[in-house]
Amino acid sequence: MRIVVLVKQVPDTAAQIQIKPDGSGIVEEGLKYILNPYDEFAVEEAVRLKEKISSSELFVLTVGLERTKEILRTCIAVGADQAVLILEEGEPLDPFSTAELLAKKIESLHPDLILSGKQAADDDMAYIGGAVAQRLNFPFVSVVTQVEILENGKKAKIKRQIEGGEEIIEVDLPCVLSAQKGLNEPRYPSLAGMMKAKKKEIEVIKAADLVPDIRKFARTKLERLQPVPVRPAGKILQGSPEKMVKDLVRFLKDEEKVI
């Protein structure tokens, strides 16, 4: 079975994110970057499937910068066989272009199964899994909590959580699945795994060599980032009960216009 996991490097979820004054992006100095936590579930599931199904091969694939190799090493350290970085050092791509790059590379890998996290912890877009599936004309099941491969790898039985219950879906392979928390408990990389990851060559492909003129695929454009407006302090009414009630009614009627 050939499995591809799509991963993304995101700022540490514990970090305090600051927006650049011009709103073009976030301040990157001093930020620590990690493997997107939802992608950890996807990688772990792929490793478990690989361990269960003999002669499986596990690829991890990302679009990013030179530093993005760090998360690929983490993936190799926990069991991925091959890692591919699609290098794009210009302005960040829109998700549609990113999906195009990923799909282009995936075509050459002929996978039976593609996994990703259900969303990235930085932009929460929850876009890539679906977009890649659409582009490759594969079925897509999102927010999965259990994966079972059936019939010699022709189908999979999937569980996903919905409001008040679980949905059980049978899906044809190849397909794209996006991982939800609870799918598994990701393992820690071992020292031996880390040493293996250090020696392993990471395949680097320039985005332009994979898809010339990738930017023409863009369908969305980030206009700007802005901080959430600070909540104004609450008002405390004072005086006798009669006066406070009068003030409150006037406030709700004239200022907030809710009654």
């Binding site: 090493r73 983490t74 880390m194």
Partner: peptide, 14 residues
Amino acid sequence: SEDHLMIQDMVRKF
């Protein structure tokens, strides 16, 4: 080094 940071990160989480 990058290796030491990776080890530190793993052990801290563990």
